[in-house]
C-alpha cells in the first residue's frame, strides 16, 4: 500500500474550517468554564454552608459523569426546558462550559488555598476590604500557582471538543471522519488528524512545562 497525502491538500479548506470550529469551541468554552470555575471556587470557599455545599455538590456531580453524556444530556434537555430548539453548537458549548467549569474550579480553588492564610490577615489588618485583599494580594499569588494547571486542563478541553462529533457539529474531528469516509484515504486522513492534535497539544504542554519551571524559580 502506498500513502498518498494529496487528499489533505484537496480537502484543505474543509480541514481549515473544521479547525476553525474546534478553536471557536475551545476559546468560548475556556472563557465560560474559567469564569464559572472562578465563581464555583469562590462559592466553595464561602463560610456559608449552603453556598459551599452547593458548589461542592456541583463539582462532584460533573466530575463523576462522562463528558459525552453531558453533551447528549444538554442536547436533549435544553430544548425541553426552554421549549424551543437551540442548535447543536449552543448545547455543546453549554455542556462543555458546565462540565469543564467543575474541573477549572478545583484548579482555581487549590490555587487560592495555596496562598498562606496569613497573607489574607495581613491585607485585612491594613484596612483593605476583603474583595480588595482577594484582588491585589491573594489572586495574583494564586494565579501564578494556577497557570500550569490551567494550561494542562485547557489542553484536555482542546481534545474534549472532538466529542461534539456525537451531535453532528463539523469540528476538526467530524470533518476528518467525513473526508476519510468520502475519499477512502482513511489511513492518510487519520494520520494527518492525529498529527495535528499531537502537534498542537504537545506544543501547548511544552509551553506549560516551561512556564511551570519559570514560575518555580
Amino acid at each position: 500500500m502506498t500513502l498518498d497525502f494529496s487528499i489533505i491538500l484537496e480537502a484543505w479548506p474543509a480541514f481549515l474550517s473544521g479547525m476553525g470550529l474546534t478553536l471557536k469551541l475551545l476559546v468560548l468554552s475556556l472563557i465560560g468554564a474559567i469564569a464559572l470555575g472562578t465563581g464555583l471556587a469562590a462559592m466553595r470557599l464561602s463560610p456559608n454552608w449552603f453556598v459551599s455545599t452547593f458548589a461542592s455538590s456541583y463539582v462532584n456531580l460533573f466530575r463523576t459523569v462522562p463528558l459525552i453524556m453531558a453533551i447528549f444530556w444538554f442536547y436533549f434537555l435544553i430544548p425541553l426546558l426552554i421549549g424551543r430548539p437551540v442548535g447543536a453548537l449552543t448545547s455543546a458549548l453549554v455542556a462543555l462550559i458546565f462540565f469543564e467549569g467543575a474541573f477549572f474550579s478545583e484548579i482555581i480553588r487549590s490555587g487560592i488555598q495555596a496562598v498562606p492564610r496569613g497573607q489574607f490577615a495581613a491585607g485585612l489588618a491594613t484596612g483593605l476590604r476583603p474583595r480588595m485583599v482577594m484582588q491585589s494580594i491573594v489572586l495574583p499569588q494564586a494565579f501564578r500557582a494556577m497557570i500550569p494547571g490551567l494550561l494542562t486542563q485547557s489542553i484536555i478541553v482542546f481534545q474534549a471538543t472532538s466529542l461534539v462529533y456525537v451531535v453532528g457539529l463539523s469540528d476538526f474531528m467530524t470533518t476528518t471522519v467525513r473526508i476519510a469516509n468520502g475519499s477512502g484515504r482513511i489511513v492518510e486522513v487519520y494520520l494527518f488528524c492525529a498529527a495535528t492534535y499531537f502537534v498542537l497539544s504537545y506544543g501547548a504542554s511544552v509551553v506549560a512545562r516551561y512556564l511551570e519551571r519559570r514560575l518555580n524559580r
Binding site: G118, A121, A122, L124, A125, T126, G127
Partner: peptide
C-alpha cells in the same frame, strides 16, 4: 483596622 497597625 486602617488606623490600627498589626505586625505578624
Amino acid at each position: 483596622r486602617a488606623h490600627i497597625g498589626m505586625v505578624f
